[in-house]
Design a protein around this nucleic acid. Structure first.
Length: 271
DNA sequence: ATAGCAACCTGAGGGC
DNA sequence: TGCCCTCAGGTTGCTA
């Protein structure tokens, strides 16, 4: 389900329900996520949620004893439910704050993760090599330009590399490159500073707009209240292979890059 | 260092 | 109806 906007929408949705609440119980129905949910997770019981943060596509529930790290993988969703809510297939994990406040993780493909981290989160192996947050100031055109020098990797693959910038997944990489008029195959190192200035701003704008719209609902993403996101209605290229470009009406093409589908307009994104 | 790709897993959709 | 194949919003970790 999630790229950065979907995770952020999720964070904003659960925060008012869990902030300053105390964890009463933990229920693990299936520990076999990307990494096993370990019994040390029980250390969170009796802890209070001091902050609800996001780093990259990870949600962080920060308590006095440690941080609960949640990742939604490709198909994960979080809901706030109550004790009478019937169990659905793939409801693998509950964080119980009370009879009426249960944070429940559903994840059919189990690419997601639930981790209990007691060390400094920024020194954790999963976090230590992450690039800057795209919505913060340290993600700038100067930074992106410097990182790209002498890189032959295609710009689309470059943007999806977490070491360069986090949170830009397949949907928003496609959309940002279309809006910037950049060919996804163009080597990152051959793009001018001026074009990086435009691209950097477009990435920020695309992500912010998607957050405002409540994220993109394709198959299984819903907001915490179960409503879909509305950004799918704004997608210019993603998932539109063979359809007409909204700008020039030529046919959108799809190629494969680093194992992921890239959709683009050969006319509007010539170079 | 870098690039490509297999792996993890379930479900949906298309072709026959 | 069923079977088989491909594909899906992510990320790690292997090989060359």
């Amino acid at each position: 389900m999630p790229e950065l906007p979907e995770v952020e929408v999720c964070r904003l949705g659960i925060k008012p329900h869990v902030l300053n609440q105390t964890v009463r119980d933990v229920i693990v129905r299936n520990p076999n996520m990307r990494w096993p949910i370990t019994p040390t997770i029980d250390e969170i019981i009796d802890c209070s949620v001091l902050e609800v943060q996001r780093r990259s596509k990870y949600l962080l529930l920060i308590t006095q004893k440690g941080t609960l790290v949640l990742h939604l993988g490709m198909s994960g969703t979080l809901r706030i439910i109550n004790k009478d809510t019937p169990l659905k297939k793939h409801d693998h994990f509950d964080l119980v704050f009370g009879d009426d406040v249960i944070l429940r993780l559903n994840d059919p493909r189990r690419f997601g993760a639930v981790l209990w981290v007691t060390e400094n989160i920024n020194e954790h192996p999963l976090f230590i090599k992450l690039g800057p947050e795209p919505l913060l100031e340290d993600f700038s055109s100067d930074y992106l330009y410097q990182q790209s020098r002498k890189k032959t990797v295609p710009i689309k693959t470059f943007l999806m590399n977490n070491h360069i910038v986090v949170g830009v997944g397949n949907i928003y990489a496609n959309e940002a490159l279309f809006q910037a008029g950049i060919n996804p195959l163009k080597p990152a190192g051959k793009i001018t500073k001026k074009r990086y200035q435009a691209l950097t701003q477009i990435i920020k704008d695309v992500l912010k707009t998607a957050i405002k719209q409540g994220g993109t609902t394709l198959k299984d993403f819903t907001q915490v209240d179960g409503k879909p996101g509305y950004f799918a209605q704004k997608l210019m290229v993603y998932g539109r292979k063979g359809e007409k470009c909204y700008t020039c009406e030529d046919e959108l093409k799809e190629i494969k890059q680093a194992g992921r589908a890239t959709t683009f307009c050969p006319t509007c994104q010539k170079s």
